Simulated assay, not measured.
Amino acid sequence: MGRLLVDGRDVANLMLADTWARRARGMLGRRRLPEAMWFVGEASVHGMGMTQALDVAQLDADGIVVAVHVLRPFGLVPPRRGAVDVLEAPRGSFERWGVRTGSRVARDDGTGSGPGG
Rank of each mutant, 00 (worst) to 15 (best):
L33H: 11
D7L: 01
V70W: 00
R81D: 13
L14F: 07
L87H: 08
D62M: 05
R22S: 12
M50I: 01
R30W: 03
R100M: 02
R81M: 04
A17V: 00
R22Q: 14
P34T: 08
D60I: 02
V66W: 06
V11D: 13
M48C: 15
M1W: 05
L28N: 12
V86P: 11
R100V: 06
M48T: 11
V65S: 10
R91N: 14
T111K: 12
E88A: 01
M15Y: 10
R72L: 09
G102E: 13
V105I: 09
L76E: 14
G98F: 01
A106Y: 02
T111W: 09
R80M: 08
V65M: 12
V105T: 11
E88N: 05
D85V: 00
A89C: 03
A53L: 04
G116E: 10
G75I: 14
S113Q: 11
D10F: 07
V40F: 05
A89Y: 05
G26F: 02
D109E: 12
M1G: 13
R72K: 11
E88R: 04
P78S: 12
V77C: 15
R9H: 13
E95M: 02
V65D: 15
G110W: 08
R81K: 14
V6T: 05
P90G: 07
A43K: 11
L76I: 14
L54D: 06
G63M: 08
G98N: 05
G92K: 13
P115M: 07
D108N: 15
R22C: 00
L28E: 06
D60L: 05
P90N: 09
P90F: 01
P73K: 03
V86E: 11
R100G: 01
M50V: 00
L54M: 15
P78N: 07
R3H: 13
E95Y: 01
G63L: 09
